[in-house]
Each structure stands twice: as structure tokens, then as C-alpha cells.
Design a protein around this nucleic acid. Sequence first.
DNA 1: CACGGGCACTTACCCGGTTCAGTGACTCCG
DNA 2: CGGAGTCACTGAACCGGGTAAGTGCCCGTG
Lengths: 339, 339
Amino acid sequence: MSKHRPTIADIARRAGVSKVAVSYALNDRPGVSPATRASIKAIAQEIGWRPNSAARALTRARADTVGLTLSRPARMLGVEPFFMELISGIETELSARGCALLLQVVADPAQELEMYRRWWGEGRVDGVFLADVRSPDPRIEGVAELGMPAVVIGHPSAAGSLTPVWSDDSAALRDTLTYLSALGHRSVARVAGLPELAHTRLRDGAQREISAELGLDEPVVVHTDYSGEEGAHATRRLVSSASRPTAILYDNDIMAVAGLSVAQEMGLDVPADLSLVAWDDSQLSRVVRPPLTALSRDIPAYGTHAARTLLTMVADGSAPGFEDAAARLVPRGSTAPPR
Amino acid sequence: MSKHRPTIADIARRAGVSKVAVSYALNDRPGVSPATRASIKAIAQEIGWRPNSAARALTRARADTVGLTLSRPARMLGVEPFFMELISGIETELSARGCALLLQVVADPAQELEMYRRWWGEGRVDGVFLADVRSPDPRIEGVAELGMPAVVIGHPSAAGSLTPVWSDDSAALRDTLTYLSALGHRSVARVAGLPELAHTRLRDGAQREISAELGLDEPVVVHTDYSGEEGAHATRRLVSSASRPTAILYDNDIMAVAGLSVAQEMGLDVPADLSLVAWDDSQLSRVVRPPLTALSRDIPAYGTHAARTLLTMVADGSAPGFEDAAARLVPRGSTAPPR
DNA sequence: CACGGGCACTTACCCGGTTCAGTGACTCCG
DNA sequence: CGGAGTCACTGAACCGGGTAAGTGCCCGTG
């Protein structure tokens, strides 16, 4: 067993042809007879040849790799099923097209841009995803400047000149508030995520607007870091305030579970005294008692769409944005008419 | 702004020297005067030069990339904080050393080996991590055969000839059972993970052994797919069986939370009627009521150790295995003496 | 003042695969 | 039967870096 990995030169030697013939044969390009092609392919198969990705990248100026960076602390990331599901969906599409995913978890958003600069400069990636968009987000302009294909996972209004893949949070919010309003709720608070994230702002605005439309009270919104701890704390504050809401919407499910525990601990009956809704639906929502009414969406599919869009951009230089399905409200036991 | 990324040839032209001089200068190798070196570096900086990773990989036969594949379905992965935290820890070490992580989520273990073969054959990675080791696991021998540096994230007994990075589950289990035994429990069941995983088997064996040593009942172990649904179902079965256990240990926290809900729904008081312990401790354990007694470990640190070991292997050709700290039992409100 | 040695830098070639411009040999057709 | 056209294949150059082996120059030294 020779030490080095086989190259097309090895195949050429064995087949008694030049490496060019081998290259043509293996890439299914004209210029070699069917017989030669077959024998070359057989030899390649036999000695287990694989194209060296670096050599190929060098000539084609293609890395067959796209990048994704995430900048939340480890313990926050872990608890959010969102990212893992997103990544998983992204990879479904990528691996079907022979493309790899470079992942980087960094400490802060500034480092993300630096990472993108490096990846692009080094020719390591053909494009990137931008998640957790802030407003304003220096990455947007930075990436656009580099001329690097990029897909923003988030609303067009925050994507600048980049191509967005998003789902309509406003519609999901409308469904939810309409449903709660129909149940008779007038005061619906929200325990929101990081205020610097663009989608948090959008949800904040939409909630205010839709609440006004539906004739609900001006909503109280508490911002958190998405952790269970802050979710619990926010719930405690909301529930003990003078104008206690009759329903609370949480921006992720760990906070919703934390809120549920707090409410029950404080002697409130969920849903009779307090209705709860979780944004994003994982196993967690179904596992607690009562099971949580949730805004459910197919996150792997979301990732797949984002990947498909990015690959189109890489191939064609541009791609249309893509609006994914809005989250669907799944009523479960945590919502009911207020007492 | 020129279309193509700057190369050392561009720098050489500007500086009026050969590309070799530029290469020497930028790599801090002797052969250029301090003045020339400085001016070359200044030019490189100015035009934003970055070494092309493909070109570099081609000569050095180094990809500066390591790989990790995961083969659980998207919805399982998402809900397990373990992997995200592990990845995050891995990256802390990798990014400090200028190494990237190639991630691939695949459908089944056979595809993982195929992926490793491809990555290695294409020279895309310098080494890989193996997580979720099965017994037996074809990947172990497959990877060893390729001669590819690899670190097994799991117990040495399952790592074959590969280098393991592990933590002592047996010790953690001993602490837990000793603690429960001291509280007065005699019948401690376990809702375990996938039976085909090596670490599940190891835990099963250790639990039997330690239970016997401590004079506890022969433990009932129910295997699941780690989902909340199966955790709930297993709990229901255990609790309604004739020989109802007084304490249950869960192999992950989502199942523990599911178990807690089931127990409460069935009118049991946790911890008075039933004590619960979760293996692996995330925010989830602290957020529910009562908060769950858990086996806590520093998973990001675990990942960091694995990455460090792998990089050593890549650099030196081999590396000693590494035993990480065992999980620490953190008693919370879900455990108490049995009634 | 010739010679050895070190310095600063260059020429030539390599990595592995792709591309372009040939080059014979063979076929077809007027 | 001669010229055009096709086919199968090859040589050389290229991508962007890296390395080994020179080359020319200046210096110090005997």
C-alpha cells in the first residue's frame, strides 16, 4: 500500500495515456473513446482515486464549501434547537450537491465579519450564510463590499443588498394575536429575545401594530438573552405587575417552559389564569404539562431553502430571495379563554 | 477594485522582487533583508493579501481543516444541547490554531464512514472526530485503515486502535447511585439512550455492577431514542409497573423533563414519591419545578480537549488519549429520601 | 589581491488537476 | 484521389503558493 493518495498521473501511467486523457475521461468530457474512458474509470475505481479538492479548487477557483458563523455563547446555542435544525436542513441540500459546510462559533459579531473576510480572502468558501442579523449589522455591508455570495437568513428589510430567505413573522404574530383575541384576551405580553437582533425589532413593531388593529392593550414587551433564567425572571415580573397580562408569548421554547414553571410555582393555573404561547416548537413544548401552544415551523426546510438559494447565487452570480412558509399556530393545552 | 484576489505575484511585481522573495518575507524565513521584508509585508497588508488556502494545501498537503459528522435525525440533534456545546468547545481550540471545522449531518452511520473516506481521499481534512460510537462501529476500523488521524469522543474500550477522549461515566454513576442509596433508595431505574451506542452499553453494565455492590435492586433499564416522547412513555411504564422504582435516572435532560411532567400528571409528588436525576445538565434542568438534580459536566471543555488531542495527532502523528473530568452530581429539588 | 564565506535574491521545478492549442490518423465526399 | 473535417489523444502552460539549488555581490582575511 503506497503512502500517497493516488493522482490522475498514477491512473495515466497504468492506462498508458496522458493525464489529460484521464482528466477528460473522468469528467465525462469529449475527447476520449468510450473504450478508453471505461478502462480509465475502471482503474480510478480500482485504486480508489478521489479528486484532490485543493488542486481542483485552485484551477476552478471554487471551494465547493460554504460558510456559516454563529456568535452566541455556547450555552445559549446549545439550548436553542433552532440552529441545529437549521444546520441539519442546510446540509441536506449541500451534501446532495457535493458541497461542504464550514462552521465557526465565535464570541462576537465583529469576529464574524473578520472570519468571512478571511474565508473569502483565502478562497476557502464560495459563499456564506448570515444568521442572527442585527440592526444595523456591519456584516451586511462588509460582505456586500467583498462581492461574496451571501444569503441572509432573515427579513428583507434587514438584508440590505443581500439576498434574503425569510418567513413572515408578522403573519404568524397576526394568527397568534387573532387567536388569543378570539379567546377573549386583551392584554398579551411578550418575552422577547435579544433586542439588538433585527427580527426581535420586527416582531416588536408588528406586535404593537397588530395589537392596535385588534383593539388589544398596548403590549408589554420584555427583552431577554433567550435564556431560561431571564425567561423566568421576565415572567415573574410580568405576572406580579399591576397590569398583569392574561397571555404571554415567548420568543423561544426554553423561556416558555421557564415561564410555565414560574407561573405554576406562583400558584397560577395555566391556562385558566394565564395563557402561554411559545415561538418555535420543539419536543420541549409537547413534553411539559400542559403542553404548550406553539408557533411551529419546519426549520430544516428553512435551512434547505437557504442553502438552495446560496448555491444558486454561487452558480449564477445572483438568486431571487425566498419567502418560506410562515410559522403555523399549533394550539395545545397552554391557551384558553381568560378567567 | 480588481476582480481577482491578490496573489504573491502581485506583491512581487509591486515590490520589484521575485515571488520567492515575497514567500520568504511573508513566512518569516531568512533570505530577505529586514528592509525588503518590511516593505513586502506593508504591500501585502495594503492590498489585503491572504494566502490562498487551496494553493497552500496543495504544497503542504495540509488542509488546516478537521471534520465531524453526526448521524442523528435533525429533530433529535436539535434538542440535545450536548452537540452544540461540544462543537462550540471544539471550535474554541480550532479557531485559536487557525483550523476550520467541516461539519456534516448525515442520515446513518454507514454514510459517516463514506464521508470520512471522501474527505480524506480528497484531502479536505487532516483528521476527524468520531462521536456517538456504536458497538461494534465499522467507522473505527475504516478510519484506522485509512491511516487518518482521528479522535474518538468516547470510552477507550470502544475506540479500538484510535485515540480516545472520554470522561468516566462509571464514576459519575457511582456518585449518583451512592447518593441515592444514602437517601434510602433501593430501586433505581434508568431511562437510557440508544442501545446501539457504546456508551449506553457501558452505562448499562456499570449500573448493574454498582447497584449490586451497593446492595440495590437489580436495575430496570429502558432504552429509548433520546426523545421526549419515548422518555415520557418509558416513565409511564416504569411508574405503573408492579415494582415501581423510587428513583429514575435519565440519559438526557429532555427525557428527564418529560418524565417529570408524566410523574406530576399521574399525581406523583417529585421528589417525595419519585426522585429524578438527569444525565447532562442544561438550562432546562434548572428551569422546571422542581429543578432537576443533574450530572453536570463542562461539555465545551470536553470538546476543547478533543480538538487539542486531534491537532496534536495531526501535527505529531500520534497523541495520548485524554480522560476528562467525570460528570459532577449537582443535587437539586428532584431528589429526596423515598416516602 | 586572490579567495572563502555569507547575504540577498533568483531560477527552476513541484504539488494535482484543468485548459488550450495543437498533431497525427482516419473518414468522407466531390 | 486530394482536400476538408472529425476523432482520439498529447505537450505545454496555468492556478497560487512552496522548496532546493543556484547566482552575483560584498566583505573580511591571509
